[in-house]
């Protein structure tokens, strides 16, 4: 799928936003971006909004070594060690590999991006100061699973696009900088009104959450407990193949509750195998299940 070729590091999501905008318009949605780069796609006058983030981990070039390695700064410190050994691509198309001599307590200043240059000048010519990079997905798929680096970012987007094909009277909010404490969503909700916001995220496969066994309705996340009546309605909309889960991750389900005028909130997740490691895995059936669940919910409410 061409979507996996699109790079969308936090703060530089414009390529993904353009892609989704074109898709939304082809489906008859009125699509606009706000000052923050968030994309709002609307059809009809329903009061439900389906939301997902569109950004992936960002690495920003801050310098180069004498031997031609690129030094980067990574705003999301908990993701740093998971980058080692992975392929990254800068927005100007230059590809590199993340190398690191340390094996523990890794900070972003320990990382070196190897783009195959052997001196400072060569590197400076290839990649300018301040350029952004993110993981290359490097997709492998079979009939049941999609495997790739950092592909958990794409799963909520693909799910939302599936729902868009068949939903009426619904708004879709594609938010930027979600990895940055949900900043895009915070900004958007300051000026946008909805009665209910259903957020699509991912959840690591573990314990009670298994890949291939359907969408996961969230009962609790790090920052919030979703609105009870929304949570119950989502579970009902999932029918027989739905899972229920809690997570220690911050999915920002509290933001609709506390930003702007306030809205009801619910969360639907897709399970990810080996989230954060090389070649995460997502079951195609789970994406389909999540899309159907959300569509059922929308149809029942509307």
């Amino acid at each position: 799928m061409e979507i996996f070729e699109i790079l969308s590091p936090s703060g530089r999501e414009e390529n993904m936003i353009s892609y989704i905008k074109a898709f939304g318009e082809s489906q008859g949605y009125k699509c606009n971006t706000d000052v923050f780069g968030n994309l709002i796609c609307e059809k009809g006058d329903g009061k439900i909004a389906v939301e997902c983030g569109v950004d992936s981990v960002a690495l920003m070039k801050i310098g180069e070594t004498d031997s031609g390695m690129i030094k980067v700064s990574v705003p999301s410190s908990k993701e740093v060690s998971s980058l080692v050994g992975k392929k990254v691509k800068f927005l100007n198309g230059v590809v590199g590999v993340v190398r690191c001599d340390k094996t523990e307590n890794i900070e972003d200043s320990d990382l070196n991006i190897d783009i195959g240059e052997t001196d400072k000048e060569g590197t400076k010519e290839k990649v300018p100061m301040g350029e952004f990079a993110t993981l290359c997905a490097d997709i492998t798929e079979n009939e049941k699973f999609i495997f790739g680096n950092g592909i958990s970012v794409y799963a909520p987007i693909i799910t939302a696009l599936e729902v868009m094909k068949n939903a009426d009277d619904t708004a879709f909010l594609f938010t930027t900088q979600k990895k940055f404490a949900g900043r895009g969503l915070k900004a958007l909700l300051g000026g946008y009104e909805a009665d209910t916001v259903i957020s699509i995220n991912t959840i690591p496969e573990k314990d009670e959450v298994k890949c291939t066994e359907g969408a996961v309705v969230i009962i609790k996340e790090k920052g919030a407990v979703p609105t009870e009546k929304v949570r119950k309605a989502l579970i009902k909309a999932g029918g027989e193949k739905v899972q229920v889960g809690a997570t220690e991750d911050n999915l920002f389900l509290d933001l609709p509750l506390i930003c702007g005028k306030g809205a009801l909130t619910g969360g639907v997740c897709i399970g990810v195998r080996d989230k954060g490691k090389a070649y995460e895995g997502i079951a195609k059936a789970d994406i389909k299940s999540a899309a159907e669940l959300i569509l059922n919910y929308i149809n029942k409410v509307n």
Binding site: D34, F36, G130, R183, A187, G191
Partner: peptide, 21 residues
């Protein structure tokens, strides 16, 4: 350019105010 993404300032509050600035 400020060559680091560490630290923060009031832009963090101002940029997300009321629909974004």
């Amino acid at each position: 350019y400020k060559a680091s993404v560490k630290g923060g300032n009031d832009a963090g509050a101002i940029s997300i105010s009321e629909g974004g600035i």
